[in-house]
Amino acid sequence: MANSFTCNIVSAEASIFSGSVEQVIASGLMGDLGVLPGHAPLLTELQPGPIRVIYDGGKEDNFFVSGGFMEVQPNVVTILADSAARAADLDEAAAQEARQQALRAFNDKSSELDYTRAAAELAEAVAQLRTIQQLRKKAGKG
């Protein structure tokens, strides 16, 4: 069991995932990063995007977070997500719609919506789409 560690994913509303995994791949603020057992202690902010956890034996699960923090300790990884969802729950149509809306608000600077919020919404929608597309690709391959 030396090559597995505990991973906890929690969001403000609920505990999303907790269990023993072999690898966690998250999208940090500086780029994607994979965490294996025995990783040095690390704290990073997370970008909106997918989180992949790979179990012993290669099976994997996808989650979506819209930002948050990840703490890595040698034998435990804690992900504090702003809001997290199982990637399979994501609805592509809803994500597309959100992206369109964000883009509209983004372009229409005269509108009441403030610019930073629109940018954040856009980033989130794009990240959701990225998660879905990643899932698609894998489904196509398998």
Partner: peptide, 15 residues
């Protein structure tokens, strides 16, 4: 100590 990404100050401020 931790490794920090992007940097300790920004991260801890937010966290």
């Amino acid at each position: 100590d931790y490794l920090y990404e992007p940097d300790a100050k920004a991260l801890l401020d937010n966290l």
